[in-house]
């Protein structure tokens, strides 16, 4: 246990504590490495005064909320369908997992071909079907670009939720479902009143994982839009990268990272608290 703890501390705790320390300093790069000057909260004040930071927080929260909700609903639907399949289930499962197994940067490059405003696959299909008459620049307008990014995200991570939910469904004893049938419950009633309460904890775990990941949203906007158009898809992680590694402003960059971490932990705790409340209510 002890050696493992040391390794974990070295690779996670140390960088985290160090970056929190960085966020409270003015940092100058010199020939002899970093020079720190205690700055108190001034890096955080700088963030709060920045409209871009506030936007990035708002965007990331809304993005996380919408994509996670959509993934939960679609993932559960996919799991229910998979569970009912009598044959071809394992091959479908493998197929479903393809998007999830692709490295995001690669699938993002693929989506950028699909969304391309002149030679894009999506425009070509819609033009051929006469659904549109001029090419749509999917990544050229704020709402469209946000929606397109969300769609690519949901496509990739919905299978993850589906697999988790499927595992939850499989764990429900067959007798419970059969008993509900005997009592004359409809399919909808079985799902809503029997299955859903029983897979709630699995779903909350899936949701938690997804929320945490969604807050680290980086590769999709980085590849697809570079944070644009304007700053419409500037997630908190893209902003942090810009501040830290393009501007070489290490203090404010560390503050972006540290504040994100705090925000995510708070979100996760609130989520669990709300969820537990819901679960207890359901039991009653």
């Amino acid at each position: 246990m002890a050696p493992a703890l040391i390794v974990v501390s070295a690779v996670t705790l140390f960088p985290i504590v160090y970056s929190i320390y960085m966020s409270f300093n003015h940092i100058h790069l010199t020939l002899h490495g970093f020079r720190f000057h205690w700055a108190g909260l001034s890096n955080y004040r700088l963030l709060w005064a920045s409209g871009l930071y506030r936007y990035a927080i708002g965007f990331t929260v809304v993005y996380a909320a919408i994509t996670v909700l959509a993934e939960l609903i679609l993932g559960t639907l996919a799991a229910l369908i998979l569970q009912r399949l009598r044959w071809g289930r394992s091959s479908l499962l493998a197929l479903l997992l393809l998007p999830w197994s692709l490295i995001t940067v690669i699938s993002a490059e693929m989506w950028s071909y699909i969304y391309n405003g002149v030679y894009g696959v999506l425009d070509a299909i819609l033009l051929t079907l006469h659904i549109i008459h001029t090419p749509v620049v999917w990544l050229g307008f704020p709402q469209l670009a946000i929606a397109s990014t969300m769609f690519a995200d949901i496509w990739k991570t919905m299978p993850f939720v589906a697999i988790l939910v499927l595992a939850g469904l499989e764990m429900i004893p067959v007798e419970v479902i059969e008993a509900s049938h005997m009592d004359g419950a409809t399919a909808w009633q079985i799902f809503w009143r029997v299955q859903l309460p029983l897979i709630r904890s699995t779903m909350s775990l899936a949701a938690l994982f997804r929320i945490l990941q969604a807050f680290g949203l980086f590769d999709l906007p980085f590849v697809l839009t570079g944070g644009g158009p304007g700053t419409a898809t500037e997630s908190i992680a893209v902003l942090g990268y810009q501040v830290m590694f393009q501007d070489l402003s290490f203090g404010p960059g560390a503050a972006v990272a540290a504040s994100t971490t705090a925000l995510v932990l708070i979100m996760a705790m609130v989520f669990l608290w709300v969820f537990r409340g819901m679960a207890e209510e359901g039991m009653a």
Binding site: P15, S19, T260
Partner: peptide
Amino acid sequence: AVSGCGLFG
């Protein structure tokens, strides 16, 4: 994940 993104350098 965040430090992997390079935010923590």
